[in-house]
Design a protein around this nucleic acid. Structure first.
Length: 455
RNA sequence: GAGGGCGUAGCUCAGUAGGUUAGAGCGACAGUUUGUGGCACUGUAGGUCGUGGGUUCGAGACCCAUCGUUCUCCCCA
């Protein structure tokens, strides 16, 4: 028997951790509900072809695939061998695998909308809090199983949805007391840039290069652009684009000059301005930062895109989202525009922990420990305890008659603030001794008054 | 997919240029006269040194492989 272990990139959560995670979930959930979003849950596995091809080449490689059952069936040997050959050649084959663990919550949601659009009332606003799985190499802030909290609106083109979703971000992070910056860009701006220098078909090469700016620096980006066949003149435009700086308004002005009369550029800027100006009136614009180098990997985005960064923390993005104008057409139902955001709970947890931002009051453990002083006494004490439990006070009784020392230590280790002692004397006097472990104060309380005692 | 670090008691780690029976702190358990904890003292248990090879008279230490873990890059939440 080998030592038990956990699959790579997965974790157990102990009591204290679960409570802190619940605090994050509940905070986000209550904000979602306040904004009129309703819950949805989908299965942890989807058909493989629902997921494949939606996350780009890199993403497809990170999907956890589930091996089919019955591969040991000798009668299907030939078929299975053929299937394996295809899998080994890098293709998917339904004989070997036809299901996979979900990689995010957006695509399963799109699949749900495509399947149920006849019954849904649009605009349809749903939130979803569930784990997702990625076959990534685990490292800091990166797990193979982690939770996302998504809110999406489908069936509406209005930018008011973007405004609303940004407000959700701001409200949730304010409640969590986590200082953040929300970066915004627009795919249309990136498209406009591509059209101005090199053409639309270079959009992907261009965004990949731009995205690397803060990691590898301009010289290397320039080199990469050169390799991808961008002319000197085009490279200069990109350089000008990347050098845009200042306040949001200043950046937008510089961008407008650079992109000139390009239709996509103008539209992209207009949308960005709309959302920014809306949030000037809510006061939330102080969190919003126009960042034209923001690209985002998922290739289904078509409009405004967002990414949330925790301030002063060594951590990748803790949330992201954007507009996708035609996601359901991947599943045969065209013309349902959508926009959504996602919270990365596990990373938010790591940042809150690192910065010590969890409130101290979320520890919801036992309030009162009843000492066990023997069979007869325990029976009397148990009846008293049950009354407190009826009043929703968390109580427990030490399960065996042990020395005081031991029972005290148990209370201490579990962080139980109060103990109640009911021994032979107390039973005959119909009262109990209540001791507060922090202060050491001990008082006698009659059984009939116990219910009104404030612990 | 590429590249580093680290695997010694339940936990955190020591372990000198390879040399006898592998150590400490914390934790656990027991006790210091069996109704009042935190402190202190005493004692007890607990290790195939990740695994498998190799070098050597001799390996926890050196070499190779393998597994696990962690971090960076890629990409992402």
């Amino acid at each position: 028997m080998s030592k038990p272990s956990l699959p790579q990139g997965t974790r157990d959560f102990n009591a204290a951790t679960v409570q802190k995670r619940q605090y994050i979930f509940q905070t986000i959930r209550s904000v979602f509900e306040t904004y009129g979003f309703q819950p949805l849950e989908t299965p942890s596995m989807e058909n493989l072809d629902t997921l494949m091809g939606k996350y780009g080449e890199e993403g497809d490689k990170l999907i956890f695939k589930i091996l089919n059952n019955g591969l040991d069936n000798p009668q299907k040997r030939a078929q299975i061998d053929e299937g394996w050959d295809k899998v080994i050649a890098g293709k998917n084959n339904a004989t070997i695998t036809e299901r996979a663990l979900r990689y995010d919550l957006t695509i399963p949601f799109a699949r749900y909308v495509a399947m149920n659009h006849g019954q849904l009332t649009f605009p349809f606003k749903r939130y979803q809090i569930q784990p997702v799985w990625r076959a990534d190499r685990p490292q800091k802030g990166r797990y193979r199983e982690f939770y996302q909290c998504d809110a999406d609106v489908v069936g509406s083109d209005s930018l008011l949805n973007e405004v609303d979703l940004l407000a959700i971000y701001v409200t949730a992070f304010e409640k969590l007391k986590l200082p953040v910056e929300i970066k915004m860009n627009n795919r249309k701006i990136l498209l406009g840039l591509a059209q101005v220098c090199g053409g639309e078909e270079k959009l992907i090469d261009l965004t990949i290069a731009i995205d690397k700016l803060d990691k590898i620096g301009w010289e290397k980006v320039k080199e990469e652009l050169n390799n991808k066949g961008f002319s000197t003149q085009q490279q200069e435009i990109v350089e000008g684009y990347l050098n845009i700086s200042g306040t949001n308004d200043e950046k937008i002005n510089q961008l407008a000059n650079l992109l000139g009369e390009n239709e996509n550029g103008k539209k992209g800027i207009e949308e960005l301005q709309y959302v920014l100006s809306y949030h000037q009136s809510t006061g939330m614009d102080k969190y919003l930062v126009a960042d034209f180098t923001l690209a985002r990997g998922l290739n289904y985005y078509t409009g405004l895109i967002f990414e949330v960064k925790a301030m002063d923390a060594q951590m990748g993005s803790i949330g992201g989202g954007g507009r996708y104008n035609d996601l359901t057409s991947l599943f045969g139902v065209p013309n349902i525009p959508g926009v959504g955001i996602s919270f990365g709970v596990d990373r938010i947890y790591d940042v809150l922990e690192e910065k010590n931002l969890f409130p101290t009051s979320i520890d919801q453990g036992t309030q009162v420990l009843f000492f066990n002083l023997g069979e007869a006494e325990a029976k009397v004490a148990y009846a008293q305890m049950m009354q407190l439990r009826d009043k929703k006070i968390a109580c427990e009784m030490y399960p065996e008659k042990s020395k005081f020392d031991k029972q005290f230590k148990y209370a201490e280790k579990k962080g139980i603030p109060n103990i109640v002692i009911i021994g032979a004397d107390e039973v005959s006097n119909q009262n109990c001794s209540i001791k507060n472990l922090a202060t050491g104060q001990q008082t006698n309380v009659a059984f009939k008054d116990l219910l009104n005692y404030s612990f």
